[in-house]
Nucleic acid binder design. Structure first.
Lengths: 220, 220
DNA sequence: TAGATTGTTAATCGATTAACAATC
DNA sequence: TAGATTGTTAATCGATTAACAATC
């Protein structure tokens, strides 16, 4: 052990981050949203108990989630809303607008292009692709639809790292391969299929049909 | 303790079901989907290892998930695809078509009405509601759009128990109250808000913006 | 029978919650 | 100071995985 390293030295940042529960990351986004609402209502301070209340969580969990990243609160007082929100946005990487690409402008893809929720959290769909010649050249909002043949070229030119995937299942894997080749490192996948991607690419699954099937289960 | 109850008697069905991990229920749906694909390809048997492989899971987990509900396999052999699938659909309650209502025919709602994934799993959107007079009377596919004033009447008449919620955040809670009053006991909620509902009503949250924020986090 | 795979128990791992000293 | 709430440790709870006897 190096002389300057104390036996009980904290783990390296990488190790520490690796240990943060996935669910805790999602809750960070939820906290950010609540803080946004509070800020809009000119609320200046909030306690872990109040934050928990808004989301139906335990206040110890709120404090623990935040403590993974630092000490943002004031003991005996709580958290400054604007300050905590700014910190969380920085941690999530949503402190600046993030431009993303959408592939597959079918029913779902089209709706996602118009969906305000992404933009509200700082994500702007800057590129959209489809194979259908009739759609190409048209636009949804201000976003032009490009032909999928230009996918690599356009994504590289824009330096885009995140893609939303809403293509038919049959072509999903081949599109993933192309996205990865074009430099994409995060994929929000709406296709009900396990996708194969390299270690360094994060795939986040959204499976609408699964969610409604759980409902059916709990109803009997 | 009643005389006919053995001290080590198995827990009641209710207790047993209460102990099944929520994540296990979602995996049941995933198994069903894989089994559907296998059946279409005329595959007659499958092992827990193969099922796990398709979904990137552990084979012990597959066996344990299934074992919560009974003994569906043949030791030394595996599972009969058609048989297991039929059993799982029965457990999930998707062995017959389930008619659901959709409230809020905006961009997202409109896309959900056309989304094939629900129908493929046995869910049919039978009713749709909106406040916008211009939309009412029109239809998406074969489904007419009714005015939200008729919500209780129509839902009761059709005996519908599950609703998909894609309305603006401001009115979400009031719509939930009306759905509950009309007899709905399951809500698939796309509104980024915690909804208040009675104990007997199950609310399943789908939060698209949260998912993409996690991607941003993992990318740095 | 020999080989393979299930169903199930025990061990491990991970996440949540309770409790409280430290701090403002 | 007294009161309140954080940050953090320890305890609890829950879910996943390994291991293997039972079974076909």
């Amino acid at each position: 052990m190096p002389a300057d390293q104390h036996p009980t030295a904290p783990v390296s940042p990488q190790d520490a981050l690796a240990r943060i529960p996935k669910a805790a990351i999602k809750r960070l986004s939820l906290y950010t949203r609540v803080l946004q609402n509070l800020e809009m209502n000119n609320v200046e301070k909030v306690s872990s108990h109040e934050l928990a209340e808004h989301l139906g969580l335990n206040s110890a969990q709120v404090r623990k989630d935040l403590a993974y990243y630092g000490q943002f609160g004031v003991p005996g007082f709580g958290y400054y809303v604007a300050d905590l929100r700014a910190n969380l946005k920085r941690i999530l990487g949503t402190d600046k607008e993030i431009r993303v690409a959408l592939v597959g402008v079918g029913n779902l893809g089209s709706a996602l292009m118009s969906y305000g929720g992404f933009l509200r959290q700082g994500f702007k769909i800057a590129l959209a692709f489809d194979v259908d010649g009739r759609k190409v050249g048209a636009a949804r909002g201000n976003v032009p639809i490009d032909h999928i043949d230009d996918l690599e070229k356009r994504i590289r030119a824009e330096g885009i790292e995140i893609a939303i995937l809403s293509v038919p299942a049959e072509v999903a894997q081949s599109v993933v391969d192309r996205l990865v080749a074009a430099g994409v490192t995060g994929i929000l996948n709406f296709v009900p299929l396990r996708l194969i991607a390299p270690e360094h690419v994060k795939v986040q699954y959204v499976d609408l049909a699964i969610e409604i099937e759980s409902l059916s289960y709990y109803l009997r």
